[in-house]
Amino acid sequence: MAALEPGYVCRRCGWRLSRRDGELDCLNCGETIPIANGIPRFPVPNGVSDSSHETVFDRLAPVYETPVWFRPLYRLIGGATAPRDDRSTIASMLEPEAGAGAEIEAEAEAPTVLDVACGTGRITRRVAGDAASVVGVDISGGMLERAQRYAVREGIENVAFARMSADELWIGTDAFDRVACCWALHLFPDIDAALAEIRRVLRPGGRLVGTTIVDEYVLGAAPVRAVARLTVGAEPFDVESFRDRLRETGFSSLEFDRRGSALFFRARAE
């Protein structure tokens, strides 16, 4: 769809992957990654496959950005004080901080951004205008196909999408200036591994921004948490334990803004 060609890296040997004959190949160890409908399909956990397994998020993809799903769910979780548009809030959090040290924040060019668990690309598309490039990764093929379709429709050319697990990113160390991870950390089976991978691909001084859900407001009630767990596998965080997790994974300068059960956060890679 676009001219953007991300520098994917082989997880087996560390060599940069090369695109040829409709696939990505490692010329060192022979690892091959198929490409379907323009989207590289890297290995993902839990038996998810392109043909035999449809996840709940594959089924949600056609309605995710319609009025029947994300917006009413966001208003329920975030409550009356949540930002009207979470995408604009995330985009502003990705911008350089006022008064930050020049050695960290002064960038000659627009930042490179990785959108982890990008879904249908709501955030990917929103931040692309201020970024040099944005790579969106997700384990749901259905979500990614929808994301690519939306980006093409809007004429956005500095984005690329790949099926990839957050806890095994086929991306080089220190590859991105920013990472966004929105409405997803509470869904990951191995949160610490995902945070460690995000820290690895962020350059020192780079920023992680995102949103997740916490066990307060409507999610402070056990029956509501049970429904969230049963429907989409969501496990809300305790705010302080989440803060500790970020610190233990190599993040500092933590900023939290809780609105209802929604937690907006920003952290710097040490």
Rank of each mutant, 00 (worst) to 15 (best):
L60R: 05
V179F: 07
S140G: 05
R146S: 09
P72F: 13
T81V: 08
G260H: 04
V116P: 00
I171M: 12
E95R: 15
C182D: 07
E105W: 07
S88Y: 04
E105R: 00
V68F: 12
R125A: 03
A106F: 13
G205Y: 07
D85R: 11
R59Q: 15
S51I: 14
M143V: 08
V227L: 15
F237L: 06
L185W: 03
E105S: 15
R122D: 04
E235N: 13
D85T: 05
V63Y: 09
A226L: 15
R149V: 01
E248T: 15
V44Q: 04
L27D: 14
A132N: 10
T81D: 14
W69Q: 07
A166R: 05
E105N: 04
P204K: 14
T249I: 02
R19N: 04
I123R: 01
I39E: 12
V135K: 02
F237E: 02
A162M: 10
G220D: 13
V9S: 01
R71H: 05
T211G: 00
A234N: 04
V68K: 03
R258N: 08
R122G: 10
D115F: 07
G78P: 10
R19H: 12
V152M: 08
L76C: 04
G79Y: 10
V227C: 01
P189Q: 05
E107Y: 07
E54V: 12
D115M: 11
R84Y: 00
T120E: 04
E23A: 15
P43N: 05
R146G: 00
V224L: 15
G172N: 06
G30S: 13
N46F: 12
R243M: 07
G155P: 05
F161A: 09
P83G: 09
A234W: 03
T112F: 03
S49A: 04
E97S: 11
P40I: 15
R122V: 00
A196F: 05
R258I: 09
E216S: 15
A80M: 09
G101R: 10
A36P: 02
R125H: 06
P6R: 12
E240A: 11
L187D: 10
E103G: 15
D238Q: 13
A80V: 13
L24K: 01
V179H: 08
L17P: 03
R84N: 06
L230F: 08
E240M: 11
D25Q: 13
A193F: 08
R178F: 03
A221N: 06
G206A: 11
E157H: 07
W15R: 13
D215L: 02
D190K: 11
I90K: 04
W69S: 08
I191F: 10
I104R: 11
V218W: 13
T211W: 01
A194N: 05
E270F: 00
L246Y: 10
R59I: 05
R247I: 15
A2N: 15
